[in-house]
């Protein structure tokens, strides 16, 4: 892959050729999806805990409330993550040592704050983006739990990625562009961040060093490519693509090569994350009008 700072035309040509080639490949054979939930409610933002390996996601619990929920895959037990939550909570992520986690809370009218929970001492830190309509968007927490990267709009209509420490101090703007950058995710080592950006003209997948340098474009499709997430070993990225006119789950190598379609479902497949074993992908699929969490093995696709 090529850096966005050099040879854009060559990079573009390379990406186009690669995308065309990948689209000509037959869909790699994946196992049948396994349905994990049955309530059919709207779900999004899937994420695993590192200790108990529970799946945490946000779900529309009532017509007016999105809650974080935990699903134990072994027992099938379902519980509210924050039992007393009485407003919308979305987009959670955990540090590897489970000492911190971060999420987004809807604390006012068209207003969201970033919250970091220190699990050991019980402290809750909150980053308020200011008065009026203001929303912190998607976030990711570094594997060592020291930093959080999140997306936030600028006054010029763009949206940038910002970094802050786990006490929500020392904010630093990682990306500076005229585009919309969103859905950041740290690599397992914490050295790299993958994210979605419109700098190619529509939503595509990019990656950069954790300090914001060396931005690479990984996908180049006229349809939406979004919500990338690294595999546990860092070699793959799973993401959602609308390149065929319907939301499907794809995987690719961490350098953007070897793009493969994982799901093929007439409904919407989205919000994918890797199981900690690196062999399965969990995602939300709309099947027969219901939005449930499915698991699909990608073991045979990891070449």
């Amino acid at each position: 892959m090529n850096s966005s700072n050099s040879g854009p035309s060559h990079r573009h040509a390379f990406l186009v050729v690669m995308t065309v080639l990948s689209s000509l490949l037959p869909m790699a054979k994946a196992a049948e999806p396994v349905r994990l939930t049955t309530d059919g409610r709207m779900k999004q933002d899937l994420c695993f805990t590192y200790d108990t390996q529970e799946l945490i996601y946000s779900v529309l619990k009532t017509p007016q409330l999105i809650k974080l929920q935990r699903l134990n895959l072994e027992s099938g037990n379902l519980q509210d993550f924050h039992t007393s939550a009485n407003t919308n909570e979305i987009y959670i992520d955990f540090a590897k040592d489970m000492k911190h986690y971060a999420y987004i809370r809807n604390d006012g009218n068209l207003h969201t704050v970033l919250q970091v929970q220190d699990v050991e001492n019980g402290e809750l830190h909150s980053l308020n983006p200011g008065g009026g309509f203001a929303c912190v968007r998607a976030l990711t927490i570094s594997p060592d739990g020291q930093n959080i990267v999140y997306s936030f709009p600028e006054t010029n209509g763009s949206q940038q990625l910002w970094q802050t420490d786990n006490r929500l101090q020392n904010k630093k703007e990682l990306t500076k562009s005229d585009f919309i950058d969103a859905y950041p995710r740290y690599s397992p080592t914490g050295n790299v961040i993958t994210f979605t950006s419109t700098r190619s003209g529509n939503f595509d997948i990019f990656r950069m060093s954790a300090d914001g340098t060396g931005i690479f474009q990984l996908t180049d499709n006229p349809g939406i490519d979004t919500r990338p997430s690294f595999s546990p070993d860092g070699s793959k990225i799973v993401y959602t693509s609308l390149r065929q006119g319907n939301y499907e789950i794809f995987i690719m190598n961490a350098d953007g090569s070897n793009q493969k379609q994982v799901t093929k479902n007439p409904g919407k497949d989205d919000f994918a994350c890797w199981h900690p074993d690196g062999k399965r992908i969990l995602y939300v699929a709309e099947v027969k009008g219901k939005r449930d969490i499915y698991s699909i093995s990608v073991e045979d696709m990891r070449d």
């Binding site: 007016q64 919308n88 006012g108 068209l110 309509f133 929303c135 968007r137």
Partner: peptide, 14 residues
């Protein structure tokens, strides 16, 4: 996207 509302189309944010 506001507390105790039901997700209309008023997308000043998001």
């Amino acid at each position: 996207f506001s507390p105790n509302t039901d997700f209309g189309w008023d997308t000043h944010v998001k």
